[in-house]
Amino acid sequence: NKASVVANQLIPINTALTLIMMKAEVVTPMGIPAEEIPKLVGMQVNRAVPLGTTLMPDKVKNYE
């Protein structure tokens, strides 16, 4: 099972992601793969992401 990116804290809307905000966890359904964490640093979320929520591609601005 592959790990996904999960919010390590509440991430407010329009916040630029940092390493400390994210952790890798095996979750269902799968979100953004954990190996993409370095790519996500500096990207902004387009909505608030509660603690423990899986980061889905549609929650990150300009994620492809």
Rank of each mutant, 00 (worst) to 15 (best):
N14P: 00
Q44I: 14
G42H: 03
N46D: 07
K2D: 08
R47H: 13
P57I: 01
I20Y: 12
P50Q: 10
T18M: 07
T28A: 12
M22S: 01
G42F: 09
S4A: 01
V41L: 09
T28F: 14
K23E: 05
L17P: 01
P12L: 09
P38V: 09
G52L: 06
Q44M: 12
I11E: 01
P57K: 06
A3Y: 10
V6G: 01
I13W: 07
M22D: 03
G42R: 00
L40M: 02
G52V: 01
M30E: 12
T28E: 13
L55A: 03
M22G: 03
L55E: 03
M56E: 06
D58M: 02
P33R: 08
L55T: 01
V41K: 00
V41C: 08
M56C: 10
V27D: 01
V27R: 15
D58V: 01
I20E: 14
K39F: 13
G52K: 01
A7M: 05
E35R: 12
G52A: 02
K2W: 13
M21N: 10
E36G: 01
L19I: 10
T53L: 04
Y63E: 02
I11C: 05
V60I: 15
V26R: 10
L55I: 13
Y63C: 06
V27M: 05
T53F: 08
G52Q: 00
P38G: 09
S4Y: 01
P57F: 04
I20Q: 14
P29F: 08
N46T: 14
Q44A: 08
N1C: 15
V26C: 12
L17C: 06
Q44Y: 15
Q44R: 14
I13Y: 08
V49P: 07
Q44K: 11
N14L: 09
I13A: 15
I13R: 12
L40G: 02
N14K: 06
L40D: 04
V26T: 10
N62Y: 11
V41D: 00
V27H: 03
P33Y: 07
L55C: 07
V45W: 00
K2M: 12
A34L: 04
M21V: 05
T54N: 02
Q9R: 11
V45C: 07
A48F: 09
P33L: 10
M22L: 10
A7L: 03
L19Y: 11
V49I: 15
L40T: 03
M43G: 02
E64N: 14
I37W: 05
I11K: 01
V41H: 02
A34P: 05
V45E: 05
L19K: 08
L19S: 08
T18R: 09
V41Q: 05
E35G: 11
Q44E: 15
D58I: 04
D58R: 01
I32L: 03
E36Q: 11
E64P: 13
D58G: 08
T54H: 02
P38S: 10
M22V: 04
K61A: 10
Y63Q: 02
D58F: 10
K23M: 07
N46R: 10
L51W: 11
T54I: 07
G42W: 05
V45R: 00
L40V: 02
P57W: 13
M56T: 15
V5I: 14
A7S: 08
K39Q: 12
A3K: 12
A16F: 15
K59W: 15
A7H: 03
N8I: 07
E36P: 01
D58C: 12
I11P: 01
A24Q: 06
Q9H: 03
D58W: 15
L17N: 01
N46Y: 09
P33T: 05
K23W: 07
A7Y: 04
L51F: 13
D58K: 02
A7E: 02
S4C: 06
V60M: 05
A34N: 01
M30L: 12
S4I: 04
I13P: 11
E64S: 14
E25R: 13
R47V: 15
L19E: 09
M30D: 07
I11H: 00
M56K: 04
T15N: 00
S4F: 03
M22Y: 05
P57M: 05
T18V: 07
K2S: 11
A7T: 07
V5L: 03
D58Y: 13
E25H: 09
V5G: 02
V5Y: 06
P57H: 05
L10V: 08
R47S: 15
Q9K: 10
K59P: 03
V41S: 01
K39E: 09
M21T: 03
V27E: 02
V49T: 07
G42Q: 04
N1H: 14
A7V: 06
N62I: 03
P57G: 06
L19V: 09
N62M: 09
M43H: 09
G31Q: 06
M56S: 14
V6D: 02
M56H: 10
D58N: 11
A7D: 04
K61I: 15
M30S: 12
K61R: 12
A7K: 06
K61N: 10
L17D: 01
R47T: 15
V5R: 00
I32A: 03
P57Y: 09
P33E: 05
I11A: 01
E25I: 09
L55Q: 04
P29L: 06
K61H: 11
L40C: 06
A48R: 11
P29K: 03
K39H: 13
A34K: 04
A24N: 05
I13Q: 11
V41Y: 01
E64R: 11
M56F: 12
V6H: 01
E35V: 13
E64H: 14
V60C: 06
I13M: 12
G31D: 01
E25M: 15
K59D: 15
E64A: 14
P33K: 06
T18Y: 02
Q9G: 03
Y63R: 00
P33H: 06
I20A: 14
T54F: 05
L51N: 12
P50R: 07
L17T: 02
L10C: 14
T54K: 01
T18H: 05
N46F: 08
N8M: 09
L51C: 14
V49A: 04
A24T: 07
A3E: 10
V41I: 12
T54W: 00
E35M: 11
I37G: 00
E25F: 09
Q9W: 07
I13N: 10
E35K: 11
V5T: 05
T54L: 05
N62C: 13
I13E: 14
P38E: 10
P12T: 07
K61M: 12
T28N: 13
T54V: 10
V49E: 07
E36C: 14
S4L: 02
L51M: 15
M30P: 14
I13F: 08
E25Q: 14
I20H: 12
A3G: 10
V45G: 03
V60G: 00
Q9E: 09
R47Q: 15
G31P: 00
M22W: 04
A24W: 08
A48L: 12
L19T: 08
I32T: 00
